[in-house]
């Protein structure tokens, strides 16, 4: 028998008996998220090369063409989706872990203190308004699907290019991300206690069951849709600037 000195409760930040690389996931997650946010901000500031032929960057959809706004239109367009993601239950987990280190990982000591208020005080208490941001961003979906239709218009005739498929993938990912939202799942039927009590409740139960299947993959759709939004913008930007030529598939 060997005695090893040690203490059970360690107040030092980052202290843990975990032997795995617990810091890799929050670090990678934080870096990738910061990169995507940085790209989206940069693209929103450009104000050029977001529209070519039938292709429109999702960062500029729905298209606002007035020129009297004090800020680029993309900022007004992007504000609700940005707030929707900022208050999203999945992204909250991601940024509380990666940026606020609260906690950095499970069973890893954080900066201790009794002043912790969680989501009970400003600004985080505003996370409770996530459902309203869902309502607003839900209105974007018809515009995004109309962008898919426009992306099949090549000078008045039907066609499919690589850009069409990229815009279709992005709109599909955003639709899945929206319908897998926890607040949407609650409003669709999660707030009921009795699913069988009426025909309307049974219909809501069917919708809630489908939303629950999507909700299990909410993290996947959150990441996928952020990548596709930035990817679709980048593709449109490269085609519009003449850096690449959009291959026509059909």
């Amino acid at each position: 028998m060997m005695v090893v000195s040690g203490e059970l409760r360690r107040p030092r930040f980052g202290a843990t008996e975990r032997r795995d690389a617990w810091w890799v996931a929050p670090l990678l997650q934080g870096l990738v998220l910061a990169s995507l946010i940085a790209y989206a901000n940069w693209a929103a500031f450009q104000g050029t090369n977001y529209h070519v032929g039938g292709y429109l960057s999702p960062l500029y959809s729905p298209l606002i063409t007035v020129d009297w706004l004090p800020v680029p239109p993309s900022f007004i367009i992007l504000l609700p989706p940005v707030l929707f993601r900022a208050t999203c239950y999945y992204y909250r987990k991601a940024y509380y872990r990666s940026y606020f280190l609260d906690p950095p990982a499970c069973a890893v000591a954080e900066i201790r203190g009794t002043s912790y208020r969680g989501e009970t005080a400003f600004p985080f208490v505003l996370q409770n308004l996530h459902r309203y941001l869902f309502f607003i961003t839900f209105l974007y979906l018809p515009f995004l699907w109309s962008d898919v239709v426009h992306a099949t218009n090549f000078g008045g005739s039907f066609g499919i290019g690589v850009g069409t498929l990229i815009i279709l993938l992005n709109t599909s990912a955003l639709t899945l991300y929206s319908f897998s939202c926890h607040s949407a799942r609650h409003l669709i039927g999660g707030n009921l206690d009795c699913f069988s009590c009426s025909a309307f409740n049974r219909a809501r139960h069917a919708a809630w069951s489908r939303a629950s299947v999507l909700n299990e993959r909410h993290m996947l759709f959150a990441w996928l849709s952020f990548f596709t939004v930035c990817g679709a913008d980048l593709y449109v930007r490269l085609v519009a600037s003449g850096a690449i030529v959009d291959p026509r598939l059909l």
């Binding site: 509380y96 872990r97 609260d102 499970c106 969680g118 989501e119």
Partner: peptide, 14 residues
């Protein structure tokens, strides 16, 4: 005190 939960999902993981 459910507002204190910041949904970092460690409970689900374990």
């Amino acid at each position: 005190g459910i507002g204190l939960c910041n949904i970092t999902k460690c409970c689900t993981e374990v």
